[in-house]
Design a protein around this nucleic acid. Sequence first.
DNA 1: CATGAATGAGACTTCATTCAT
DNA 2: GATGAATGAAGTCTCATTCAT
Lengths: 210, 210, 210, 210
Amino acid sequence: MSNEAEINETRPATRGSRRKEESRRKLLEAARTLFVEKGYHDTRPQDIAKQAGVGHGTFYLHFDDKKACFLAFVDEARDEVTQAAMNRIEGVTNLEDQVRGIIESTFDYGEEFPGVFEAAVTDPGLLASNEGEVPDANILEQWGDVWSDIIKGHQDDGTLPSDFDAVLGGQAVVGIMRQTSIVGQRREMGREDLAESMVRLIMRALGGVS
Amino acid sequence: MSNEAEINETRPATRGSRRKEESRRKLLEAARTLFVEKGYHDTRPQDIAKQAGVGHGTFYLHFDDKKACFLAFVDEARDEVTQAAMNRIEGVTNLEDQVRGIIESTFDYGEEFPGVFEAAVTDPGLLASNEGEVPDANILEQWGDVWSDIIKGHQDDGTLPSDFDAVLGGQAVVGIMRQTSIVGQRREMGREDLAESMVRLIMRALGGVS
Amino acid sequence: MSNEAEINETRPATRGSRRKEESRRKLLEAARTLFVEKGYHDTRPQDIAKQAGVGHGTFYLHFDDKKACFLAFVDEARDEVTQAAMNRIEGVTNLEDQVRGIIESTFDYGEEFPGVFEAAVTDPGLLASNEGEVPDANILEQWGDVWSDIIKGHQDDGTLPSDFDAVLGGQAVVGIMRQTSIVGQRREMGREDLAESMVRLIMRALGGVS
Amino acid sequence: MSNEAEINETRPATRGSRRKEESRRKLLEAARTLFVEKGYHDTRPQDIAKQAGVGHGTFYLHFDDKKACFLAFVDEARDEVTQAAMNRIEGVTNLEDQVRGIIESTFDYGEEFPGVFEAAVTDPGLLASNEGEVPDANILEQWGDVWSDIIKGHQDDGTLPSDFDAVLGGQAVVGIMRQTSIVGQRREMGREDLAESMVRLIMRALGGVS
DNA sequence: CATGAATGAGACTTCATTCAT
DNA sequence: GATGAATGAAGTCTCATTCAT
């Protein structure tokens, strides 16, 4: 008996917990599909459960409530996008190549999972129902911070001028990316042109172009 | 629709129409207050009517539905912000002064009517309930177009380089403004520093600074 | 217009409010029927509305929630029972006659509205869902207080000994009545015998019998 | 059922049955804690299992359903209270001393296990979910019967008058005790005064005082 | 034109119970 | 015997909208 328990500790994925993990996975996948397709307010926990092929109640076994599920979806999307971008610029040191790489990577992700990014960007503030709730940091703001780090690195080694706040610079980059890509897609600009314009605008904004 | 309004202004309003106009005004003011305070989804037509001091049913005499009311609120806010900005840069020809003027004007508006801008920026797409509805153009996108015109003017007279799409440039400006001002406020940066950084980032992005 | 308003003040039952009052009445009647028939936990607001012939939502126009409706039902029942008892002993000064009168009156009420009293006696503590809620005074306790007043009166004029606390005495009377009548009914004792035994037990307990 | 229990005591329990007995014990203790703390409707079988440190499913190995568990809790509490009272009046023949002894014993129990008595008194009728179910006799009614036996004994040996039904007398005693002790505690009367008043009221009610 | 009582589809969530492991 | 993930019927309550007055 105690033997078995110890074995379980080294192999934490017991039968039950593996099954539970599977359910959670199915639910998150379903949530992604539906949040993207119909948006937060038009997606019911019930729909997610059905799409996942589990019972209504199972939903609440994995998420405290609908909002928690949405936040989990956003977290996942953010991690994926960030990971993809990081992989793309692995080893790249030139700023312009980094900018271009991240933009390309974001476009790739958007093509592979259409709508996911847009859905994930829904302002969490909109979901707050209980007054006085912690206004969870926006995914865009978090992304801006990633950019801030990159910028700070280049300010330190002299590639970029230091006459502006790296924090605001990071947010500006995200602001440009968000707004131009939304409109660029809506007005059906070509991906190449769009990317090139974005790179130019961003590089210039940061003072990285003579 | 604006036609009709003008006709009404030229001929003396009947008793009924004056009363109606008054109701509409009170409702819109109430709507602004509540949409700003509690957001779209947590504001009920009933609340708006009560705050306006009219009966619930009266709401539907003036707006087809809740969404229409929200859109009217957004329209109004947009017009106010735009008007204020236009007044501020009246007669100003220098780009940097225009940029600074509009930013200052936006900040002023935000201080006078806290939260209105943020509320008005809610993506109308989120409100769509009927599938296949026309996703009304976002207020930010419309603003970007205003900037595009300004930029195009400066490209034509050689103040700005023409090596990027003025449309995207306009959106980029709006993107920078939105994202940096949100974060700037959240992190409690001083208004002066924030404005100065925004001006510098925008001017550089557009190639207006050596 | 202002004329009409003033008339309305003297005749507060406008058309709308009269209709509302009617709905409330129908709901309370339905609530009584169902709470008595199926108990608190097996009666749904929906059932009450249906039985009353109004829509689900109307229920919540008149009661904050299910518990509030139950409490309103209890209040009503208590008032009725109390009123009937008070009417019965109007002008009666002899204690034994008062006791007998109230017991008879309670039995009458129980025969006219079977189960109402039993249902109304449900401990409100059982309904508390939010921790720290005000534990509304029990209907029995309130009744005990009514008896306390009667007893105090007889202690003051020497009809009853003063060697016990009138407050406890009042509660004791209610305790006797409740427990003996429940069991008396369950074991199908005759009403006459039951009443007579109750009178004797109560009179003796209060020291009102030599 | 009590037969089976006794057999188990005489022959050495197998490993399995000992373990089972242990689980049942832990569950009943947990049930007592939670029923007292949160009441019947706010206590879920899951909570009981968790508090007992066993799996949810184990609950149903020991009790047919939630109601059965509650009834087992009530049984246990009743037996404890009764046993304590019986021990206290062991050898006491004087009625007043018996009454006082039982009251003291009940108070002691209430101090040692606060809330248990109150929780156990929940009318089982309230728990009935299947229509037409036998409404199990109330614990108070059972207690009244115990008193009836005591009273009958005193009627037989002439200590008490025989001009009232001993059954009702027993119920009356319980009614007095219940109602006065609830209110006495709520209004924070001193234990001594409360007990003394209760003794006097009960003794008089039964005609045991000159 | 104005009102506000009424509506009912539908939202979110809970929980007693089962059953495969 | 023990477990705990899964279930889904059922419950309470909301709210955008209508309509009789």
